[in-house]
Design a protein around this nucleic acid. Structure first.
Length: 853
RNA sequence: GCCCUUGUAGCCCAAUCGGAAAGAGGCGCUUCGCUUAGAACGAAGAGGUUGCUGGUUCGACUCCAGUCAGGGGCACCA
């Protein structure tokens, strides 16, 4: 008998045994309800970090609990294996991206296995493998055939560091690349796009079908989609046949338009410009073009604009109004032109005041009707100076104006989204080639399905300069057109890696299928993912793209559901103790903890005092803790328990060695509790009535079952679940009936409850108390409601809501009985004057009786 | 500016439908036991204006309004 808890030995032993037994294989029989538990798959960067450990441990607990609760569980793992770091490694170190990637995968796979995660490794996939990207390309062709993939020339985000273009979602609000952190540049290039905007409304509406998603994520997506409801109105240009179309959310203010503003890049700009303004306008356009997006949209910047000399007509009033151009009007949004209503729009007011343009009030608050205003009035009100619409409530006026415009043929209702189409082409090597051929005669020709995959050539030079390595490979690029045989060229751009990850969760349901992208029967059976777990950083990116893919593939009749992820848990970051020297700047301010005395933190170089904080673990901050080190010292079970216990899953978690130690101590206490038990011979069956001690212990056992089961429903309060186990463990230790069958029930229950959280020690202890079959094949402990019952309750006696005493009362009394009982208490008698009835009596069964006097 | 989210003991975190005089669990701290001593282990204990103000209620950590502070998203988006 092993007397001391030795995690390394038992973890290795059980991992080996479980693998041999195929314990974690996905069940094939359909007689149980399904449960699909999924973690966001990692990029194989080299080593596992604590963020991964947290993510995968949470999902693993959920998967294991559902197995014990009688579900057939799919719990797969794979690799988001295309991407720039592999290519950068090739440039720097001369290692081929494939070699670098697969060796990282091998390393990380072995680290995952040491954590005791219950994956079915038979479903493993890597997006960089031709077996997988064949189908990525196939899906691209479905999009292409549905008219959802197209090429266009556009001003796109160019990352000067990674030497490739980026999608809008991949640039943050400061204008930086999500990956390289470089400020992106605008470049005009011909690129591939996916028409995500066709699905904008569905992507927005269907957020309501996701009650199991955090509000935060849903609101971020809704913000990103950015729906606004309004009108499209056309203003004829004086002396020309053309019209200027504008989008407005305030058609009710159209009588207050005193000018029109075009974006400088607007194609009508040169046309409306009069000859005497030509030079000034051209200079202005150049100035604006030289500014970065960031400069141009900076807040508190004066609005710059100049008149073109052109004039338009307000079709509602017949008035002639000047046409201007200004830098605050963005060509990419709406129609690239706005109507200026200074009286009722903050920006227009500022612009008109600065440029001395007329301000005409057309909406007024119900009470006062001032025509002189000092700031824009943007609230609803009563329409004035608006012809036939005068006196109308402006909210109703919106529709009335739209109806009128539609009847007259110069406008209509319109919904505008902020969301833009998804730019998916990348000028890099390590991605799935876009499977099309450019033929001088036929144009863009898709690669026939039978020729998929378009395989990445292997003998490639990585210089890091110039065009994509693929574009330099003549023998690969030059091919005959599949349609007419003319000499043609392959597309040399590869796909955004977010395409790879937009459908991997579907492939897991049929990962080895060589004939199809997946068997819809299998996929529709397992999908949607019941619980998805991953980082908040994908709130928009991956999660929005995946929702889009699901809807498109549903419309291709491959899927029969609308949303891919039923419930979403976004786990918090893992933060490490960080020492910073406030006198230093940049990365130099971070001081490695190995060089710091924790009791007196000083800069080892300068002796300056250091600041202590918790920040997300990263190499550059020297605040990381390697999972390997923790496992070597305490074992995977302790690492798992600590991570689950220290904070609720969605909150940030501060890594603290002392708390890790605390979890190790807890597992040690459980260990000694159960080794002691295993050396005794307690009663197997209960004889006769339970004693008070037995009843109390049994209540503790079933309270733990009840609480932990509730903690695992829906919102996964794994931290409190762990604390309930500690309570049960404490109750068992203090129990005075250790040779009773109830004690045996308690020991068994504790091991079963612990099994999903700390799978190795639970298995070891389960076998130690004489079981043969794996603890992970047992069913989840069943709650016996009757065990929670008590004979007597403590009843609180309140007077006017204040506690004035407590009494013991039989548990089975109804409201009237409780009140009667309470009236006879000393506390009540003291306060209730004889013969005087209280105004009101409130009885909360099981809790209190409150007399209001 | 708009939206989401969080404020409870020195620290991390609990607290069911609104129900005791706020406490499950862990860390840390204090005292005691064990020990040559320490660690480990065991036992006991201290610690609070639930960010603030007001409201609803018999009763508010919990609901409402406002406000302050932290975290996050969107933003000259017409």
């Amino acid at each position: 008998m092993e007397s001391r808890y030795n995690p390394t030995a038992i973890e290795e032993k059980w991992q080996k045994t479980w693998a041999e037994q195929g314990l974690d294989k996905t069940p094939t029989e359909k007689d149980k309800p399904k449960f699909y538990a999924l973690s966001m798959f990692p990029y194989p960067s080299g080593n596992l970090h604590m963020g991964h450990v947290r993510n995968y441990t949470i999902t693993d607990v959920i998967a294991r609990v559902y197995r014990m609760q009688g579900y057939r569980v799919l719990h797969p793992m794979g690799w988001d294996a295309f991407g720039l770091p592999a290519e950068n490694a090739a440039i720097k170190k001369g290692i081929h991206p494939a070699k670098w990637t697969y060796s990282n995968i091998a390393q990380m796979r072995s680290e995952l296995k040491r954590l005791g995660l219950s994956y079915d490794w038979d479903c493993e996939l890597a997006t960089c493998s031709p077996d997988y990207y064949k189908w990525t390309q196939w899906i691209f062709l479905q999009f292409f055939q549905a008219g959802l993939a197209y090429q266009k020339e556009a001003a796109v985000n160019w990352d000067p560091v990674d030497q490739t273009v980026l999608a809008n979602e991949q640039v943050d609000s400061e204008g930086r690349s999500w990956r390289s952190g470089a400020i992106v540049e605008k470049k005009k290039l011909r690129q591939w796009f996916l028409k995500i905007t066709d699905y904008a409304e569905q992507l927005l509406q269907d957020l309501d079908k996701l009650p199991g998603w955090p509000d935060r994520v849903k609101s971020m997506q809704a913000n990103w989609i950015g729906k606004s409801v309004g009108a499209y109105l056309e203003f004829p240009i004086v002396g020309m046949d053309e019209k200027i179309g504008v989008f407005t959310t305030r058609p009710d203010t159209v009588f207050g338009v005193s000018y029109i503003v075009l974006a400088p890049e607007h194609p009508l700009t040169p046309k409306v410009t009069t000859s005497d303004n030509k030079e000034k306008i051209e200079t202005f356009i150049k100035e604006v073009a030289s500014q970065s997006e960031l400069e141009r949209t900076a807040e508190d910047k004066p609005k710059r604009g100049i008149p073109t000399g052109g004039t338009a007509i307000n079709p509602f009033t017949g008035e002639e109004i000047p046409i201007w151009i200004a830098d605050y009007v963005l060509y990419e949004y709406g129609t690239g032109a706005v109507m200026g209503v200074p009286a009722h729009d903050v920006r227009d007011f500022k612009f008109a005041t600065e440029q001395n343009l007329p301000i005409k009030v057309v909406i007024t608050p119900a009470e006062s009707a001032e025509e002189q205003i000092t700031e824009a009035y943007t609230e609803p009100g009563i329409m004035i100076n608006s012809g036939d619409f005068n006196g109308m409530n402006s909210t109703e006026g919106k529709q009335a104006v739209i109806d009128y415009a539609e009847k007259q043929g110069f406008g209509k209702a319109r919904i505008q989204y902020r969301l833009r189409d998804w730019l998916i082409s990348r000028q890099r090597y390590w991605g799935a080639p876009i499977p099309v051929i450019h033929c001088p005669k036929c144009g863009i020709v898709p690669v026939p399905e039978s020729e998929l995959p378009v395989v990445l050539p292997e003998n490639v030079e990585f210089s890091g300069r110039g065009p994509s390595p693929l574009a330099q490979l003549g023998e690969w690029v030059n091919v005959p057109c599949p349609s007419c045989g003319t000499a043609a060229k392959r597309e040399t751009d590869t796909m955004d890696t977010f395409i790879d990850s937009s459908w991997y969760y579907l492939r897991f349901t049929d990962a080895k299928n060589e004939k199809q992208v997946f068997d819809s029967g299998k996929t529709n059976d397992w999908m949607p993912v019941d619980q998805y777990v991953g980082g908040i950083e994908h709130a928009i990116l991956h999660l929005l793209y995946s929702r889009f893919f699901t809807k498109v593939l549903r419309d291709c009749k491959l899927l029969n559901f609308d949303e891919p992820f039923n419930r979403l848990l976004t786990q918090g970051m893992v933060q490490g103790l960080t020492y910073t020297n406030p006198k230093k700047s940049g990365n130099a301010k971070y001081i490695p903890s190995a060089l710091v005395n924790p009791n007196d933190p000083k800069d080892p170089e300068t002796g300056e005092p250091l600041e202590i904080s918790y920040q997300t673990m990263s190499k550059s901050k020297y605040n990381g803790v390697a999972p390997e080190d923790v496992i070597n010292k305490y074992g995977a079970d302790t690492a798992r328990m600590f991570i689950l216990f220290k904070a609720p899953p969605e909150k940030d978690l501060e890594w603290d060695d002392a708390d890790v130690e605390g979890q190790f101590r807890f597992l040690n206490r459980v260990w000694s509790l159960i080794t002691e038990y295993s050396e005794t011979t307690p009663a197997k069956t209960q004889k006769g009535e339970l004693s008070k001690a037995e009843k109390d212990l049994r209540r503790a056992i079933h309270t733990a079952i009840d609480e932990i089961s509730k903690d695992l429903e829906g919102d996964y309060q794994l931290n409190t679940a762990v604390s309930e186990m500690m309570k049960l463990s404490n109750a068992l230790k203090d129990a005075t009936c250790k040779n009773s069958a109830v004690y045996t029930e308690g020991i068994e229950t504790l091991i079963l409850l612990l099994a999903p959280f700390a799978p190795h020690i639970a298995e070891e202890l389960w076998q130690m108390i004489g079981n043969q079959e794996s603890v992970h094949k047992q069913t989840w402990p069943k709650l016996d409601e009757s065990a929670l019952e008590v004979d007597e309750i403590t009843l609180v006696i309140q007077i006017n809501g204040k506690t004035r005493g407590t009494i013991q009362a039989p548990a089975n009394l109804d409201k009237q009985g409780l009140e009667k009982y309470a009236r006879e208490s000393d506390a009540a008698k003291r306060y209730l004057e004889e013969g005087k009835e209280p105004k009101k009596v409130i009885v909360v069964p099981g809790k209190l009786v409150n007399f209001v006097i």
